[in-house]
């Protein structure tokens, strides 16, 4: 299923865009809605992240963050698009950041929700756009005040001479999660993971961009459950929370990834509650 998803997705998006262009001549989807944050950057953001695809501002995409960034290097942001039902992609971006794109999430066999921490350069709207199968982007957001400077500060790692030895180290743990809804209960697996990486933006003087580009969560048989394509503004030593739905007999999750220098990331996370005490994980 994962293998088929990629081409099908492309066709569907193309059709969605075509449909939007055809209908859009009279009343382009989303065009009648104004940006709730009245951001001067919205038109640019739309062009950069959504292109010509139809969109609407939609409260069902919940973006949560503290009103004021206590630490501009680590602003916690959670996106929850579960109210939309099926979601194919979630794009997270911040209008006023010098590098606005933060990550692109594909919840292939996962709930459309992701939490992360990011760097902010100044006060800004932080937005998440969730793409539904009909080809429409649903845009939610939150405004965060910040003293700023997060993107142009060097990573703390550069103060530690041994940081390269720890590059790509993964700390992770999985929890069983139960969601109650109108249709009854559903089960998923919450995965929290932290990867040691400086996530250099390239904007701090003398330090080139160096960041994790991709992290993929798979089940024990190697099928993709979720995919994070991350960009420079994700915080140093990123911490992600996702909720995947591996097969019922799965005993571990595999995490693979790479940074823009080709460093491979590879780890296995045991689903401890599915393993007896005598068995070990499938490393």
């Amino acid at each position: 299923m994962g293998r088929l998803d990629v081409p099908r997705f492309g066709v569907r998006r193309f059709c969605g865009a075509m449909l939007a262009v055809m209908i859009g001549a009279a009343d382009p989807a989303g065009a009648t809605e104004t940006d709730p944050f009245r951001s001067v950057m919205w038109d640019d953001m739309r062009a950069l992240v959504l292109g010509d695809a139809p969109f609407r501002f939609d409260d069902r995409v919940k973006v949560t963050a503290p009103a004021s960034a206590e630490d501009a290097l680590n602003v916690p942001v959670a996106v929850d698009a579960t109210a939309l039902g099926a979601v194919e992609r979630i794009a997270v971006f911040a209008d006023m950041n010098p590098i606005p794109r933060i990550l692109d999430y594909r919840p292939i066999a996962a709930r459309p929700t992701i939490a992360l921490r990011l760097k902010l350069q100044q006060a800004t709207a932080i937005r998440a756009a969730a793409l539904t199968p009909d080809g429409v982007w649903h845009v939610g957001g939150v405004f965060v005040d910040a003293a700023g400077g997060g993107c142009t500060s060097p990573a703390l790692a550069h103060g530690d001479p041994t940081w390269e030895r720890h590059l790509g180290e993964v700390q992770a743990r999985a929890w069983p999660a139960v969601q109650a809804s109108a249709e009854g209960q559903s089960k998923s697996t919450r995965l929290r993971l932290r990867v040691r990486h400086p996530m250099d933006t390239g904007l701090a003087p003398g330090i080139p961009a160096f960041f994790i580009e991709t992290l993929v969560v798979r089940d024990g048989d190697g099928r993709e459950l979720a995919r994070i394509d991350s960009h420079e503004p994700v915080s140093e030593n990123p911490v992600f929370t996702v909720e995947v739905t591996p097969p019922a007999d799965g005993r571990a999750l595999l995490v693979t990834g790479r940074d823009n220098n080709g460093t491979e990331i590879r780890a296995s996370v045991p689903l401890a509650w599915r393993q007896s005490s005598l068995e070990t994980s499938t490393r």
Binding site: P66, E70, R173, I265
Partner: peptide, 21 residues
């Protein structure tokens, strides 16, 4: 309380996430 979560949680969180590679 919100500020304290930002100050203190990252370190506590690390202590409950085991190394897996």
């Amino acid at each position: 309380f919100t500020r304290s979560v930002a100050h203190l949680y990252p370190k506590i969180e690390q202590s409950v996430l085991p190394r897996v590679n």
